[in-house]
């Protein structure tokens, strides 16, 4: 039972990180109709820059700089590319982000090489014991930070003028534009927010129990895409639920891997996709996504 509880807590903390990434994914989709495949490489960029900066300027400034850099790159992608082809077919928009993703990812892999960079978290290596299993302090802090950020995000989404503008343009872009809401600005802010969320998630994803910054972080980040899809691409609440669901499922699969060994070693890493496909079989628009209706 204690093992189950520990795994649950582990899963929730991992899920909170997935939710952070998925939230960015969802608001980008809501504001600019873009399914952003750049998230994996943005995350890697965040992790890499934090690790590199912290060699020279210390941990806290490095985190700030890394988060800022990621946000700026996200903003540049929006301004230089997405903004130019606003209104193109959804598939073209998605494919463009894949192109950007290839470029950033290749650059990251080239820079990292086969090393594993270390982010010197002040809380590195410490853990809290619950029964027979431990929970790393990194995950505990990440859970707190993620919860805080997610709360802040939902407040801003509900009450700030940006949040209102954003929801209005997601509801009906044309009407919102006629009301004087600047679509370009809404989508630019969405990309910045997504960049920040991805970089913060990256900070914790590369801490214990993960060894450090290596290109495999990219694959971990991709696990957030199923989270966004299964919650419903246009639902922020769905991203939260989807993230948690996938985090818990992954932690459980890793914890009980001896019992599910017949499914093959390392089944935990494909759990996000299995859960996603299972949900999509029943609900093709995700758990909370709005079903697309067409009026003729």
């Amino acid at each position: 039972m204690t093992q189950f509880l520990a795994l649950l807590l582990n899963g929730v903390s991992l899920g909170a990180l997935y939710a952070l990434i998925a939230l960015g994914f969802v608001i980008i989709f809501k504001s600019s109709e873009v399914v952003s495949f750049t998230h994996g490489s943005l995350l890697l960029l965040g992790a890499y820059s934090i690790a590199r900066f912290s060699d020279s300027i210390g941990f806290v400034p490095a985190v700030l700089a890394g988060v800022a850099l990621t946000a700026v790159v996200a903003l540049l992608i929006e301004r230089l590319i997405i903004n130019r082809i606003r209104g193109a077919a959804v598939i073209s928009l998605a494919i463009v982000t894949i192109g950007v993703d290839i470029i950033i990812l290749t650059e990251m892999i080239r820079r990292i090489g086969s090393d594993i960079l270390n982010v010197p978290h002040p809380w590195a290596g410490e853990s809290i014991r619950i029964g027979s299993t431990g929970l790393s302090l990194n995950r505990v802090i990440s859970l707190a930070v993620a919860a805080g950020l997610i709360g802040l995000f939902f407040l801003a989404f509900k009450y700030s003028s940006w949040g209102v503008a954003m929801r209005a343009s997601a509801e009906d872009g044309e009407a919102a534009a006629l009301m004087g809401i600047r679509q370009g600005r809404v989508s630019a802010v969405a990309w910045i927010v997504a960049g920040v969320l991805a970089a913060v998630a990256a900070l914790f994803l590369v801490g214990a129990p993960t060894p450090g910054v290596s290109p495999t972080v990219y694959t971990v980040a991709l696990g957030a895409l199923p989270a966004a899809i299964l919650g419903g691409l246009d639902s922020t609440g769905g991203a939260l639920v989807g993230g948690l669901l996938i985090g818990v499922a992954e932690a459980m699969a890793a914890g009980y891997q001896d019992q599910i060994l017949f499914l093959g070693r390392g089944f935990g890493s494909v759990i996000p996709y299995v859960v996603m496909l299972a949900v999509l079989l029943v609900r093709p628009s995700g758990l909370f996504g709005t079903k697309e209706l067409t009026r003729v």
Binding site: V35, V90, I91, A94, L222, L225, P226, A228, I229, L233, L263, G264, R265, G266, F267, S269, V270, P272, Y273, V274, M276, L277, L280, P284, S285, G286, E292
Partner: peptide, 23 residues
């Protein structure tokens, strides 16, 4: 699934497939 949902859903097949082929 609509075009774009399918894009991400089909991503799953690649990873699940690799797992199956590895095992």
């Amino acid at each position: 699934l609509g075009g774009i949902y399918l894009g991400v859903a089909s991503l799953g097949l690649v990873f699940i497939g690799q797992h199956v082929f590895n095992s």
